[in-house]
């Protein structure tokens, strides 16, 4: 039986074809990585519902204000550096010395962990309409950084590991013990118009 050998296919144009595909992909795709600061907006208050001021104790709120010239003020202090703000926020949320002027704590039962005194502090960020976005993100970033620091400290004290290395259950315990209390408050102009 004389079998006819199939002729070999010329692979010389393979490079051209793949170059063509490569260029196509270079044109139509983007390389932006989707990273950022995730936030949850508070739901819009019901219109029928009366606007009642949440009765939050004065000591439990930290007002963080950014004015039109990108100046930052936390509580009554003028903030000059990121580190200062971070330390201030950490101190506010942990209240290590149980000071009277810093947020109160409420003992709550956390499943799988036991009783823990959860801080009731809330940070309210207010900005002006002409604050730059980069400053706003910078402040938001510091707040997240401070929160991560407290969570890491808590995790290390209890499990000897960073928050990110904990199991899912342990992470949820940490999240309950140290809740994210950054409120995106109703917008208002911080800088008073004269």
């Amino acid at each position: 039986m004389a079998s006819k050998k199939t002729p070999e296919i010329n692979g010389g144009s393979m490079a051209d074809i793949s170059f063509l595909m490569l260029i196509f992909f270079l044109m139509v795709t983007t390389m932006d990585s989707e990273i950022g600061l995730a936030r949850r907006l508070p739901p819009m208050p019901d219109k029928n519902q009366k606007v009642e001021d949440l009765k939050v104790n004065r000591r439990n709120i930290m007002d963080l204000k950014i004015n039109s010239r990108d100046g930052v003020m936390a509580g009554n202090k003028i903030i000059t550096s990121e580190q200062q703000l971070e330390d201030l926020v950490v101190e506010f949320l942990t209240n290590p010395a149980n000071s009277e002027t810093l947020p109160s704590k409420k003992v709550e039962f956390i499943e799988g962990f036991g009783d823990y005194a959860v801080s009731e502090g809330v940070i309210s960020v207010q900005n002006d309409r002409s604050t730059t976005y980069s400053k706003y993100i910078e402040v938001q970033n510091v707040l997240v950084k401070a929160l991560n620091r407290i969570r890491d400290d808590f995790s290390r004290a209890n499990w000897g590991k960073d928050y990110i290395n904990l199991t899912e259950d342990q992470q949820s315990i940490v999240r309950k013990a140290i809740p994210n209390k950054i409120s995106e408050s109703e917008p208002k102009d911080v800088t008073k118009k004269k």
Partner: peptide, 15 residues
């Protein structure tokens, strides 16, 4: 966005 109850947002940023 709050009015449309699209509450999950993300401020895209660079590392």
């Amino acid at each position: 966005l709050r009015r449309c109850s699209a509450l999950k947002i993300m401020y895209a940023a660079r590392k």
